[in-house]
């Protein structure tokens, strides 16, 4: 039986971080460690360290984390080449 099944692996679509136009950066001084950014990141590009850690190899810069952050600790800045 054949149907369209694939097994998720890290980086199956390549280094999607290169797609990024806006780059999120976390101000750990403001971060309250609620982990909403970690929950909402659609690419699982945020991991749990002492504070949230963004994996810039795969973060596409969608900005959902910045939108969800209740204390505005994540800022989206234009990606520098």
């Amino acid at each position: 039986m054949k149907t369209a099944i694939s097994y998720p692996t890290e980086g199956a679509m390549g280094k999607t971080g290169t797609w990024r136009v806006f780059r999120p950066s976390i101000d750990i001084g403001k971060c309250i460690k609620c982990w909403r950014c970690w929950i909402f990141c659609p690419d699982a590009a945020i991991s749990k360290g002492e504070y949230p850690v963004i994996d810039y190899e795969y973060c596409k810069g969608c900005g959902i984390c910045a939108n969800e952050c209740p204390v505005n600790a994540i800022e989206m800045g234009r990606e520098e080449k």
């Binding site: 369209a4 694939s6 097994y7």
Partner: peptide, 16 residues
């Protein structure tokens, strides 16, 4: 965990 129904190249699609 699996992903079902994501993008499939013509060669595989034809086989399905």
């Amino acid at each position: 965990p699996i992903t079902h129904g994501n993008i499939v190249e013509p060669h595989y699609y034809a086989r399905i």
